[in-house]
Structures are given as structure tokens and as C-alpha cells.
Amino acid sequence: MRRRQRWLGTVAEIGTPAALVVVVAIWSTGTASFFFPPLPSILESVWTLWLAGPYRGDVEASALRGLAGFGVATVLGISLGIALATLPRIARAVHPVLEFLRAMPPPVLVPFALTLFGIANSGKIFIIVATAIWPILLNTTDGVRSVDPLVLDTSQVYRLNGWRRIWSVLLPAASPQILTGMRTATSITIIVTIVSELVGSFDGIGYQLLRAQRTYGMVEMWSGVIILGLAGYLISVIFMVIDHKMLSWFHGARGSR
């Protein structure tokens, strides 16, 4: 019975997506619908257009802007977060302001960057930093604040001060929550990168998507969706690996409790 169940489960797990892909492929090849081009040609253009073709530079441009913005946001967010966590009174005082900034829908700041920087790269990176930093900052503060008091006391007994305290006590203890904040920040990064390219740009994935939309390039658009999906998938794989490597102690500790 159990073996049969396991077997059935595996078949379902592989079978359903495979069946879906086959059905969509056959249907989209057969149909004359303008909106749904054949799946095989979409998949082909993911490679021939985006990854190894004329749009490759756009993918790189978007990736670079995203990475730069996300990197700066991470460094700034973690440092400011730690600083705020050590100053509880100030943290409480600025909390409503931070909450307001965090609740601001990220894309609405894109026109602000356009006014300030025009369509230069610096404006796009600035706006990614300005929107992706909040979840990292707030999660870092919260993570540091909820470090086990016993750990803090111990580190005090050992007279760990300054950098050593931050580096070897606070940061590791807060890392699960910091990672959560960073993960939220990645999705903001993707959204803001693409929106900033949709609104004013001359390269990038968003720009090519916009061009495809204006010329009704359905294949380009669908393959663009797949490209963005791949980017999202890549990010979640990276975070899964980090999670397994860096936080195995955390899951272990939680499991043993």
C-alpha cells in the first residue's frame, strides 16, 4: 500500500507538469490564435533571443542594475538596521516614518527618480536602493532586537565589544531574519528594475518587453515572461542554498527544541 502510494505520487509529480506542457504545446501549435503563439517557438526564442541573441545585452543591463541596487540596499539596510537596534528610543521615534516609507508602493517612486536623474543608470539604481532597503532594515532591526538575552549576557561576560560583538554575535543571531528581509527585497528589486525600464529607458528587459508590446511581438513577450520566471527561480534557488548552508544550525536548533 505504502509503496504503491509513493509510486503514484512520483507519477503524479512528474506526470502532471509534463502532461500540461504537452497539452499546451500541441494546442498552441494547432490554434491560430494570435495571442498564444506555439510553445516550442517561445521556448526556442528564450535561448535564441534573450540568452544568446540580440537581447542578451538587455538581460545583462537589467541584471547589473538589479544586482547593484540590491547589493547597496543590503549593505545599507543591515548597517542601518543594526545601528537602529542599538538605539531603541530613536528606533521607536522613527518607526512610523519607516513604516510609511515601507508601505509606499515601490513603483510610485520611479517618476521621482526620472525627475531627479533622467533615464540614467544611477537613477534606476538609486530607486532600487530606496525601495528595497526597507524590508532589510526593518527585519535586521527586529532580528537584532530579538537576540536571546542569554547570548547577549554571555557575550558581555566575555567582553566582546564593538565589531566583534556585531560580527560574531549579533549578525549571526539575526541572520535568519535578515535573510527573510533580503528575500522580500529581491522581489521588490525585480519589480522596480522592470518598471523603471518600462517607464523610461533605452535598454533592459523591461524596455524590450515594452517594445515587444508596442509591436505586438507575442513570442518576444511570452519568452520575456519565461526569462523573468527563470530569474525568479534562480533567486529562490540561491536563497535555498544559502539557507541550507548558512542556517543549518538554525533549523537544527529549532528542530531539537
Binding site: F35, I194, V195, G224, L228, G232
Partner: peptide, 23 residues
């Protein structure tokens, strides 16, 4: 049966559908 399908669609940023939906 549906977990792989859901996992596939989950990471696609919502913004990706915008140009398609506009058309």
C-alpha cells in the same frame, strides 16, 4: 500532482504579465 506546477509559476514576478495583459 500540482506542487511542481505551483512551484513553477510562483517565482514569476507579477510585473511580467503586464505587457501581455495590455495587448
Amino acid at each position: 500532482a500540482f506542487r511542481p506546477v505551483v512551484e513553477f509559476f510562483r517565482p514569476i514576478p507579477s510585473i511580467a504579465y503586464l505587457p501581455l495583459a495590455v495587448v
